[in-house]
């Protein structure tokens, strides 16, 4: 079964990416984790994400385009990246979720991937 792991990090944690003192340990943890998931054979896809202040949000309301800088809502925890993994069951997905560095600094959400909807005739 496919599950998406959503890695949510605090602002402080995300800031480590650009802190010369803290960046090496930050990246060492994430690259070791990503490498281990990859060699386990469970990885389907995944990516890290730039911080939310690089986001642009688009909405259409009453036929009008509304374009905003940044994410729609401010929050303390921010999406830092995601993996889609293929594992036998939820318990295995939770094991991989617990090993993500975000689990001890922010959180790791585990969601089953929706199978494609039945074809329309």
């Amino acid at each position: 079964m496919e599950y998406m792991l959503l890695f949510t990090e605090s602002a402080e944690e995300l800031a480590k990416r650009n802190d010369p003192e803290k960046a090496p340990a930050y990246w060492a943890a994430w690259s070791a984790y990503a490498g281990t998931v990859a060699t386990s054979g469970h990885m389907v896809s995944g990516a890290g994400l730039q911080p939310p202040d690089t986001a642009t949000t688009v909405r259409i309301r009453d036929g009008q385009r509304q374009v905003h800088d940044g994410p729609y809502a401010e929050s303390k925890e921010m999406l830092g990246g995601f993996f889609v993994i293929d594992v036998p069951d939820l318990d295995t997905a939770l094991e991989w979720a617990a090993r993500a560095p975000s689990a001890s600094n922010g959180s790791t959400e585990v969601r089953p991937v929706l199978p494609p909807p039945p074809a329309q005739s």
């Binding site: 340990a25 943890a29 070791a32 490498g35 281990t36 090993r99 001890s104 600094n105």
Partner: peptide
């Protein structure tokens, strides 16, 4: 070490392994 770090849940142990590997 990279494999061990990737399998570690505990942040203190993870930090320890990272420092052992550098």
């Amino acid at each position: 070490y990279r494999k061990a770090i990737g399998l570690t849940e505990n942040p203190a142990v993870r930090a320890f392994l990272i420092s052992e590997n550098s």
